[in-house]
Design a binder for these strands. Structure first.
Lengths: 190, 190, 190, 190
DNA sequence: AATGAATGAGCCTTCATTCAT
DNA sequence: TATGAATGAAGGCTCATTCAT
């Protein structure tokens, strides 16, 4: 591969996620993805070494996109409850709006496939999180727990609910959303 | 004539989980599973209509086994924090000891495959939970939130951590475990 | 196999023909035939060496049944046109009433399978025919052609029409039937 | 990119007929046909949807080829005995030289498979025949019978003999051939 | 760069047949 | 005798990947 046509890569990525979420991981063949992306299957091999390579890069791509989305542009990272709420809501919005990508990530990281991807991508939170958590702990805003624990306590419940609602078709009202955040917050707040 | 060996189904189930967790959902072929179970692939079709049928039934089987495990033998279901802690620990122990089954369940329920299985199996908590939650809410022990929310707030963080640790190889100390429960409890406690 | 249960063999034969004519030669599996005959597939192997053996014997069985049916009980074999007409009508009636068997025979004898069956069964007419043809030729009733030719000229057209009508659903009226016989007869009459 | 090789379809057709006539309808697997055609089995699926589709199209293809062969180039279709003899001989030559195709057709049209193919292909004579028959009947050259009857009376005997000779290895001398035509002709001549 | 053609390997499933009762 | 259980082999078909243009 020589010249990378980024738009084509994106088309392939989107097609892959669409097919995977429609037909399942197993039902996602290169030809289906190619057809969905409106390119020849052979074309995909100009941009990726093979199917695994494509999935790995798709995972990394969505992972970093999601990581960034937590911290909208000029967000204030002062360690306050308000900061946490903002990030928490951002997270909620992102996975709600990109539920397919999110489910893909979860499935992918549960697979043995994940072993191929570099360790650093196999965490649900990016470095910025670590900084924030450390600062918050130093400021006695939150409990002095492992970052892993903090992260899970704060984000797992809402992530889990969104995923489940995708299947049941339920939705979370704004009121409920705030309540859930307050509950999650209590679990880590000092 | 020979008699159907009931244990054979269990052998097939265990083989399926083993293969799926080793080679991923996609890499799990009937022949691999058959070899792992030490039977002919054709034999599997004596017990199941087809691959999907087998996976569905495996899912239902593990799901109900897990549901039951929460409520060991003659557990006391009085709505107290102690009851919740016992169940929570039971849950932790079960998914720790049966992490492969648990991961299988999670992957399966994220797949479009799940659509085939009856809705009632697609919930992470069994009826007993609902009773307990309702009683606890009536006793003003926990917040008056949806059962879904309660469940996610209480169990998602620890489930998420166990799953992640499977990959990283980390382990949770008894001390940490208690801390995590305390944190989770705070999120729903009244 | 020790004691031959003739009724069971007949049930198997009938089931085989039924399945073959329903699902085609290719779609006729031993288990389907067994189910149709309401016996276990293993049972068939008590009466026949294997599938080919069963088909061979089924072919021979139907073949001789058909051969005999041409010459009803105490039929008069004096070489007259009337004798031929009687036999011809008998033939018509038999293949009409046993169209499935007849089609099975045709298909079977067109297959390489036929090679397994002894030559003597691979003719559409039985020894009695030869006698009759020879006598008729001696009596200058019919042309001095090969028996093969005589047989084909006399019986192929009506056989062909019955077979075709099985598909199209058409039927042949008594009037037409007589006309067809008269035509066929003209082709061999002296 | 490579260009589809039109000859490949013909290679596949010929291979299919060869295998079917060697191993029977049942013994004709896609892989055998592929090997005989010297292509990968997967390649066949580039040209046909599935096995049935291939057989259907092969049937239609051979059927129309045979139909056309009756009426060599600039054949005279004036309703005379001579015209019928020419066509009859053409038919004889075609099925003799293409006996495998012909047997394939017969077997195929006797199978339930035939149901899939459009009705119009399931007749042994093409429209040109109908015209000729009608003209001949109008000219009082042949008897006023159904076209089906005419066709069967004229062509079934010789077709039947050729088929049978394929198995026995017999051959028909030119003399006999003329005799058989004369006989067949008598059956429909006015 | 892009793609339709081509394919060996593998998948799910069924088959004819044998085993054990 | 009769049969459900069991299986190696094979069937139809799809897949990830490469080729040739």
């Amino acid at each position: 591969m020589r010249i990378k046509d980024d738009k084509k890569i994106d088309r392939i990525y989107r097609a892959a996620i669409k097919v995977i979420n429609r037909d399942g991981f197993q039902g996602s063949s290169m030809s289906k993805i190619a057809k969905e992306a409106d390119v020849s299957a052979a074309t995909i091999y100009l941009y990726f070494e093979n199917k695994d390579d494509m999935l790995d890069k798709l995972y990394i791509d969505t992972k970093s996109k999601m990581g960034n989305s937590y911290f909208h542009k000029d967000i204030d990272l002062t360690p306050t409850k308000s900061t946490f709420r903002t990030i928490w809501i951002n997270h909620y919005q992102y996975i709600t709006e990109n539920i397919d990508e999110y489910v893909f990530q979860e499935n992918f990281s549960n697979c043995p496939l994940i072993g191929r991807v570099e360790k650093k991508y196999n965490m649900d939170y990016c470095p910025t999180f670590e900084h924030l958590f450390e600062k918050a702990k130093a400021a006695k805003l939150i409990l002095p727990l492992d970052n892993d624990y903090i992260y899970s306590l704060l984000f797992s419940p809402i992530s889990n609910l969104v995923k489940r609602n995708k299947i049941t078709g339920n939705e979370i009202s704004m009121n409920d959303l705030i309540q859930i955040f307050e509950s999650s917050w209590k679990s880590v707040a000092m």
